[in-house]
Design a protein around this nucleic acid. Structure first.
Lengths: 334, 334
DNA sequence: CTGAAAGCGCTAACAA
DNA sequence: TTGTTAGCGCTTTCAG
């Protein structure tokens, strides 16, 4: 069943069918009605590929999300979606696995869907200009910036928190409560990911507070996984290194760590205070409730769209906005 | 940059480029090399729409997943993905929102991607034959079956647990530990969703065990949301209805409920025993660890693909497999 | 092994 | 308002 069949069945030409289906103004009510009736009757569904191909332009904005079903992104995506809609564009989202190439995915989408712009959710921090030659539309990095790349600031937009500062603030929360032996749970300290940035904030805070960096307090797990955080913490606890507080670079990792702490009979808080960064919903439902610095998810999403739309419509050029976190007191701080 | 440009630049015809790009056997090494060189140099990316359109068939299997980023699905999806790959097919996944129409999505995919088959993850339980006329390839329902629909068993395949029995088993766990005042936390008791099926299992168990159904013990929240479960439970607890155990129809809902119980100073376990169904990772990281009946996620995913591939290759016809759950003891049972 | 040319199903000028 | 027709970018016969 193609548009031709419908045309024949409705006794009109294909263009009339196309017009009727796309709500073009220049179709008579009679023709439109007839067409829709046939479409309904035969359960006709237009082929998207053909449609996309035939079209010369579109109002599509692409969103490529790294990490399947990362709870941290759901709220942001919702915000992005509604904002895009409101701006009169159409959202085309694509999720990719942790090891997939977002640039390639984006480049494909750009051509396939004739995108006007792109939003990257949770990408890498080290793009080079070279790698991005295949992207020819404006794009904004959401939740991250090009910290370690060689991209010129004027070539892209971004909206994120100041990860270094957030980590600094987290450590300060612990420090101000008297903690000096502050362990840090991270993915990697020089993996070029957000983990590295947050670790740098941790280091900076210690330095500022006059605490010497103790290698023994660094728990590196090479993953953002909750189960890995649990196992990593479990393993580290066996070393029986003295500490009174833990700064986890993400809520998820903090949750894994807390299970290990509980099993090791370390009271949280009491024996150990815990703080993290992110503010996902799940960490609000654990016991004790995790104390964490929340990222303004909704704001991030809507801001990202705003930046992009402004660029697409030539109103403004590339910009970089930094949003601030808010502390969720929780119950793990003391 | 289109295939034509590449052809010109490489000094060959478009068909040769197409062959080189698609690993066809009948291309000389020299031509292939030349083409790939140009492709590389100009960063050429073929247009998927055009590709899909031009192709007469495909080895695509579509997967439509209901519910964005539902943690329950991630493991299943991973299993489905690797199984599809292994079987020599290509997975094309599409996530849809809770209120979107999966049949329409599937019908579109079927045409756009020239699917050989479909897998539905977390769909509705009440399809009618009429609604499915737009689907013309074999499909299997994963994690659910067509409990309330009028579909003939021979028209589709399914792989899921026996939800009614799982609920029955959950209640039995509580009953055997002496509980008689067993509250149930559900989405709806007649919403035609899995909630209804599990509630029926709860009812059946009570009947079997000689316990009268007490309307006061039914907590209906019209949602599967963790926050709603929390609020719903909070509200219900204010009524101060006497109970010693809670059966939540999903892990997620149990987590919300447990936060409410904790805030109401009800000890879990001790004052209240809790059991649920699903076995998601998160519920393993809360305190106390949730006792629950785990669905065999991996098995479900791989089994779904197996059924589908067998049908596509005409080896077998539609089948329905029921997998059993396993109890995760946890710490909320007593 | 290679190229020319006919589609794939739709959109969008251009005429009528 | 309508229909005709030329693409969109690729795959795939069919000749050569």
């Amino acid at each position: 069943m193609t548009i031709k069949d419908i045309a024949r069945l409705a006794g009109v030409s294909v263009s009339t069918v196309s017009r009727a289906l796309n709500n073009h103004p220049d179709v008579s009510e009679a023709a439109k009605e007839k067409v829709l009736e046939v479409v309904e009757k035969y359960n006709y569904i237009p082929n998207t590929s053909a449609r996309e191909l035939g079209k010369s332009s579109s109002d599509n904005i692409g969103v490529v999300v790294r990490g399947m079903s990362n709870p941290f992104y759901t709220d942001i995506i919702a915000a992005i979606g509604s904002r895009i809609e409101k701006a009169g564009y159409t959202m085309v989202m694509q999720q990719i696995g942790a090891s997939d190439d977002e640039i390639l995915t984006a480049a494909r989408m750009e051509r396939d869907k004739r995108l006007q712009g792109l939003i990257f959710l949770g990408g890498k921090l080290d793009y080079t200009k070279e790698q991005l030659t295949s992207i020819n539309v404006p794009y904004v990095c959401c939740t991250f910036s090009n910290k370690y790349g060689t991209l010129d600031k004027s070539e892209y937009s971004s909206v994120c928190i100041d990860d270094n500062q957030a980590a600094y603030d987290a450590v300060q929360q612990l420090y101000s409560r008297g903690h000096r032996r502050i362990a840090v749970l991270l993915s990697g300290s020089k993996d070029g990911s957000v983990s590295q940035v947050r670790f740098a904030g941790y280091e900076r805070a210690l330095k500022d507070f006059g605490i010497a960096l103790d290698e023994q307090l660094i728990i590196e797990i090479n993953s953002y996984n909750i189960a890995d955080a649990y196992k990593g913490m479990q393993y580290w606890l066996k070393k029986e290194i003295e500490f009174t507080a833990l700064f986890a670079i993400s809520d998820n990792m903090a949750m894994g760590a807390m299970k290990a702490l509980k099993e090791a009979k370390k009271k949280v808080p009491g024996d150990v205070a815990v703080i993290a960064i992110d503010g996902i919903e799940a960490s609000e439902y654990i016991n004790p409730v995790l104390s964490t610095l929340c990222q303004p998810m909704e704001k991030m999403g809507s801001e990202a769209v705003k930046l992009l739309v402004d660029i697409i419509s030539k109103k403004k050029s590339n910009r970089h906005v930094t949003l601030s976190t808010t502390l969720r007191a929780g119950e793990t701080l003391e």
